[in-house]
Amino acid sequence: MRLLHTSDWHVGRTFHGRDLLVEQEAVLGGLADLVVDRAIDVVVVSGDLYDRAVPSAEAVGVCARVLRRIAEAGARIVVTPGNHDSAPRLGAFADFTPAGGLHLLTSTTRLHRPVVVEDRHGPVALYGIPYLEPDPAKAEFGMPDLKGHTGVLGEAMRRVRADLAERPGTRSVVLAHAFVVGGEASDSERTIAVGGVPHVPGSLFDGVDYAALGHLHGPQTLAEHLRYSGSPLAYSFSEARHRKSVWLVELDEGGLAGVERHELPVPRPLATLRGSLADLLEDPAHTAVADHFLSVELTDPARPIDAMRRLQKRFPHAVHMEWRPEGRVEVPRKYGDAVRGRDDEAVSCCFVEAVRGTSATASERALLREALAAVAGKEPE
């Protein structure tokens, strides 16, 4: 049997305000071609199908079209919710969707009831462990003494193993959305540090043939049978060096036979630039990244006026900019220390200098005096 391990689709996510639905549909829809080319039997999504608990109509439409293409290509689909999804909403029609080849494993109390798929070697049980927030999960398990993420996920795996014990000779795959010790995070994952330490030990997944992990956005191998597929697209500039991919997992009669990495296309690469505004606008060396999503760090001694608009004339996909003047060292001060002993005009001028890097001009000072006088209800001096 061949499985395609994916996770963290985050359909509906934006990138610094830019809509990604077209790019998401292109990359995810291409998984259907992979299903055909590599004879994939099952595609799994280990959490965060959507980016929001209540996704937009447009995001739902993209997801529906992608899932339909994969199903029409001949694969069954198994999905479990992540910390971005709403498990009740995602699983609302879970009792009906298996007829179309879509299995939504969203229930905490039924996570030990697998989807069973047969191949020529016999049955394979696929268990879906939704993202388990500790306090609600303890209540659903009826076990208030469980401790944090490790406690609730440990109980989930205990229930999975108990079910497996009653299925001799059955191979097993577990989908789980969690932060496993040894995994490397990026800037685009929402923290799951609720109810204590978010990390759980990889040993929780001992005894299963393959654990398809979700939550971390970089593809990672923690053990031969324990892997993160990562997100199909980059969702932060910290992922610029990620090689986005999915895992092709093969099971034979003895269990895990091999895992192969398949890299995904990059709709729009990411890049970062640093320098003065004039250099960035004029240097021909930067032409290579003109069509990239771009993060820019400006080093001008004074904050350039209208810098982002000017940058976007040359780099239409510049989406993030910071001003960090070269050689300037910021000395953090408390608000009280910064304003003590200064009148309103001095405080205003100090603010202008702090945000722009240059002192207020005479005309700007006059304008500030006029504004302060208007606020105070008196004529400017």
Rank of each mutant, 00 (worst) to 15 (best):
T358A: 14
D19S: 11
A366P: 08
S348K: 13
V79A: 06
L90I: 09
L164I: 03
H262R: 09
C350M: 14
A139D: 15
K244F: 14
H242E: 15
G61Q: 04
H149Y: 06
V246K: 05
V115Y: 09
R167E: 09
F179H: 04
Q24C: 07
G327I: 08
H84F: 07
E353C: 00
A156D: 06
H149G: 01
D8Q: 12
P269N: 06
L367I: 14
F96Y: 13
L311D: 03
V296N: 01
V11D: 00
W9V: 08
Q312P: 07
V11P: 01
P316T: 10
Q24R: 02
G207H: 12
R52I: 07
V208C: 03
A362K: 10
E263I: 07
E23I: 04
A32G: 05
G17M: 13
L90N: 03
I77D: 04
V117N: 04
V296C: 08
D95I: 12
E263S: 07
L294I: 00
A125E: 09
F15E: 01
D283W: 08
E263K: 00
W323S: 02
A39K: 14
L104Q: 03
E72T: 02
M143Y: 11
G183I: 02
V43C: 06
H225W: 09
L4K: 02
V173H: 01
F93L: 14
L21T: 11
P219G: 08
A257I: 13
R356Y: 11
L153Q: 02
L216P: 05
T358N: 05
L222Q: 10
T108A: 01
E253F: 12
V66R: 01
H10S: 06
P304K: 05
I77R: 00
S348P: 06
F351A: 15
L213I: 08
R369E: 13
V181E: 15
R365V: 12
S245F: 05
S203I: 08
V160P: 00
D51W: 04
P88G: 11
T109F: 14
L132E: 01
A240W: 06
T150I: 11
